[in-house]
Amino acid sequence: MKKVSVECQNIRLSYGATEVLKDINLRIEPGEFFALLGPSGSGKSTLLRLIAGFNRHNAGRLLVDGRDISAVPAHKRNIGMVFQSYALWPHMTVWDNVAFGLVERRLPSAEIKERVASVLALVGLSDYAKRRPNELSGGQQQRVALARTIVIEPQVLLLDEPLSNLDKNLRVQMRQELLSLQRRLGITTIFVTHDQEEAMTTADRMAVLDQGVVQQVGRPSELYDFPCNRFVANFVGTMNVLEGQVRGQSDRIVAMEVAGVGEIALPLQTNAAINDRLAVSFRPHTVQLEELPERQTKRFIWLPGIVRHSEFLGEFTRYAVQVGQQTLTADQAHFAGITLYEPGAAVSVGLEPTQIRLLPA
C-alpha cells in the first residue's frame, strides 16, 4: 500500500460565532505516526473528524497525497477511523463486525473471507471470530475496532482516544501493540489523545493544540526539552517556573531579578530588553537538592530553600520546596539507604543552567 501524506493548509472552522480551529497548518509525513495532543476543547478531535470528512472547514485546504479532498464526502475518502467507544455492532460476531465494511463495498465473498481472516490473525483474534463484543475484554474489543478499520485498507488511519476506556496496565500494552501494528502496515496514522504519556511513547512527531491553535509541532523530545511557551511546557510534562525581570545582559549572560530570591545569572537564550518579564523554567528531575554546602557542584546555580512536604513514589521522591515566594517541585531518584528530607529542612536547590529555559512570562 502506498504511504501518503496529510496536509492542512490554513484551515479554519467555526460553529456560528465560535471559531474552533484557527489557521491550522500541519503536514503529516507518509507513514508517520502523528499525535494531536491537547486538553478538552482544544480542537484536536474536531480536526480529526474534519480529516475524516465528518465536518467541513470554512476556509483552507485539506490534502491527502497532494490532492485536495475538501469537497470529497467521508465515504469516498478511503480514510479509516477508530472511535473512542469502538462502535461495534453488539448483535454481530467479531467476524461479521470486521467484514461489515467489505460487505458494504460488495466485494467478492472469497476476497472478504481472505481479508477478514488475514486481519484477524494480524491482531491476534483468529480464535475469537465467532464471539460477540460483549464476550470480549476491553482490549479485545479495541482490536476488533482496529481490525474492522484496517481491513478496508485505508490510506490514512485516524484514532480518536482509542485507549481511554482501558485500565492503565492494558493501555500500556495496547499502545505498544498499536505502534507495532502501525509499523508493520506503514499506514499514515493520526492519533488524538489528551494523555501526554501516550503521545510521547508512540508518536514520531506531535502537535500540541490549545483553543483551536497549534502551539508547537515536533518530536516528543523536542517539545519536552525545548517548549516554545508556558502552555506547552506545562502540558508536555511538568515544569517549574520562577518569574523574574531582566536587569541586564552581556556576553551571552542575562541577569534576572527573581522575587524573593534576588539576582541570578543565566545563559542568554533569547533577545531580552531591560525590565522584560520572563519565566525561568526547568523540569523537576533536573533539580538537585543538597544539605551540605561542600557538596554543592559549581556548575549549578544554588538557591536557598525550605522543604514543605514530600511524596515517596518508589523510583523517586517528589519534594515541594519553597524558594523565595514560590514553591518548586524537585524529583530526586531514590536508592536504598538514601536520606530523605523532612518537612522544614533547609536545603540548597541546584539548577543546571543548560536545563533552564527562558519563556515568555
Rank of each mutant, 00 (worst) to 15 (best):
L37P: 06
L37G: 10
S40P: 07
S40W: 05
G41M: 09
G41W: 06
S42H: 05
G43I: 08
G43N: 14
G43Q: 13
K44M: 02
T46Q: 02
L47N: 04
I51G: 12
A52V: 01
A52Q: 04
G53F: 06
G53A: 10
G53M: 10
G53Y: 07
F54I: 01
H57F: 07
N58P: 03
A59N: 06
R61N: 14
L62Q: 11
L62R: 05
L63V: 00
V64S: 11
V64F: 12
V64H: 11
D65V: 00
D65N: 15
D65I: 01
G66L: 05
G66D: 08
R67W: 00
I69H: 11
A71Y: 01
P73Q: 13
K76A: 15
K76T: 00
G80Y: 02
M81Q: 07
V82N: 10
S85H: 14
Y86S: 07
L88H: 07
L88F: 08
M92Y: 12
M92K: 15
W95V: 05
D96K: 15
N97H: 09
V98M: 09
A99F: 08
A99M: 09
F100A: 14
F100L: 13
G101L: 10
G101I: 04
R106Q: 14
R106K: 15
R106S: 13
L107A: 06
L107T: 00
L107H: 03
P108V: 02
S109H: 12
A110L: 07
A110E: 15
E111I: 04
I112F: 08
R115E: 15
V116K: 06
S118C: 04
L120V: 02
L120S: 09
A121F: 01
L122E: 13
L125W: 04
L125V: 05
S126V: 01
Y128F: 15
A129N: 08
A129F: 10
K130G: 03
R132D: 02
P133I: 03
P133G: 09
N134F: 06
E135Y: 00
L136S: 09
S137D: 14
S137G: 13
S137H: 11
S137P: 13
S137N: 10
G138Q: 11
G139Y: 09
G139D: 11
G139P: 12
G139H: 12
Q140R: 09
Q140E: 15
Q141M: 13
Q141G: 12
Q141K: 14
R143F: 02
V144M: 11
V144W: 13
A145W: 09
A145L: 11
R148D: 10
